[in-house]
Design a protein around this nucleic acid. Structure first.
Lengths: 248, 248
DNA sequence: TTGGAGTTAGTCAATTTTGGTTATTACGCT
DNA sequence: AGCGTAATAACCAAAATTGACTAACTCCAA
């Protein structure tokens, strides 16, 4: 619940304000907050004691609007959540991952074309982000860190562009999808291994390292993972190094 | 609904099979499919005519299991969805984005420490992914494109690592968050601009450009923003431009 | 041979999310 | 003054999602 964060910023607000703000920067896209959920969220947060109702104004015969503020308990919770997201890697969802896992379902030439197209799209987006950052409109009245967020988008996309083209080349080159001996058998046993892809950022749920400290744990010379990635273990217990079950 | 894709792969399956498979590669992490949703999804897809019940076996007194197969309508739908995700950029959600937008809520030194820590974490993850790819266990019995997906993770992360360190440096250097003249005013008018970040890949919902074409639209010379950043509008009417608190 | 640990297959109530709907007022235009 | 459109401020029923739960079977060890 990052609605809480918003209420904290905008202090006394009513639902519609939150909704406007959220929609204004189309947060329904990159967060997952649809306008319909807002009132429910506000009420839920209130009943959890994280928010409190500050006032109930009424203008004319319009629906009365309730304004909310944050409680100190809410402030704590917010700090906690915030730290959690700053210090740990979160689950990213990207549907393209899911789609890519069905690679063998596409004809080779389409796959590589799509990848090259993806690279084009990413470049176009990057260009327009860069253009937007140059063009004064955010030079003076927008906080700097908005630009920084765009740069993150750009940086990630740049990595991805290279990948798209490398992989497209591989596909064009006819690199086989399956390690020879695979014949026909369980054609779908394919992913199975995606496991690790997600397993990695498992770790022992390291929430909130220490809410007010600067360098929370290791002395900066330490390069091995703080508490979670343990870079040497590589492949832990795989569910089964074999093809795991695989009935008919 | 990418459950459909699974059923397509594994042809006659019953819910539990799907569930096992999904859990096995912890798809509940990187997609968003919790085991509880599966049966509902199967039934919904069936009633939409994308799947059909193939049989209803019963073993002993255990709950009868219904096996599903895909219909030709379902096949079409699947192809459509697949193409959609391959040819368009999808909405990525990453909670870190949301968290980062609250940057000014953190003390500078914590922010930069957290970013450097993030870089460390990303590096560690990358190392272990790379290690996993070397170590034979996926050399022979895992399809090649699983490795490719990992490489995508790595490529993106590499971009992000650089960003983390650049930004951490900026923060350490004391670069101000707000463009001077900002004083106090609407401290939260901050993001507002995140708009564009998501608006970008809006476009006119270009679903499936043409399943066999290569270069879909613009001639790559286009450098001004495609349809979106409209760099003039900024902070609208604030309900109350006062200081908004920061109460305890 | 019993007990308990795990597997199989799926259900279900409670919570969440969603997209549309309501009902009033403000504004713009002729 | 009259009319239509947009903004305001929410509500709500329906759909989706969730995590916990059931309940029978299997299989091995004590």
């Amino acid at each position: 619940m990052m609605i809480l964060g918003l209420v904290r910023w905008m202090q006394p607000v009513h639902g519609y304000d939150v909704r406007r703000e959220l929609l204004s920067w189309s947060a329904d896209k990159w967060a997952n907050v649809q306008p319909g959920s807002i009132y429910h969220a506000l009420r839920k947060l209130t009943e959890e004691g994280l928010l409190r109702e500050v006032a109930t104004e009424q203008v004319g015969a319009r629906p009365a609007r309730v304004t909310y503020g944050i409680t100190s308990k809410g402030e704590d919770e917010f700090q906690g959540l915030l730290r959690g997201h700053w210090w740990n890697l979160g689950e990213v969802v990207d549907p393209f991952f899911a789609a890519f896992s069905f690679l063998p379902a596409l004809p080779r030439d389409e796959a590589s074309a799509a990848l090259r197209n993806r690279a084009r799209l990413l470049r176009a987006v990057n260009d327009s982000l860069r253009a937007a950052m140059e063009s004064g409109w955010m030079k003076d009245d927008k906080p700097v860190h908005v630009g920084w967020m765009w740069q993150l988008s750009i940086a990630r996309a740049e990595g991805e562009i290279g990948w798209c083209e490398r992989i497209a080349d591989l596909i064009d080159a006819g690199v086989p999808y399956l390690p020879e001996d695979y014949a026909e058998e369980p054609a779908w046993a394919q992913f199975g291994t995606l496991v690790a892809e997600a397993t990695w950022h498992g770790g022992p749920t390291p929430d909130r390292p220490s809410p007010d400290q600067s360098s929370p744990d290791q002395p900066s010379s330490n390069q091995s993972s703080p508490d979670q990635p343990s870079p040497e273990r590589s492949s832990r217990e795989q569910p089964s190094p074999t093809v795991d079950g695989e009935r008919t």
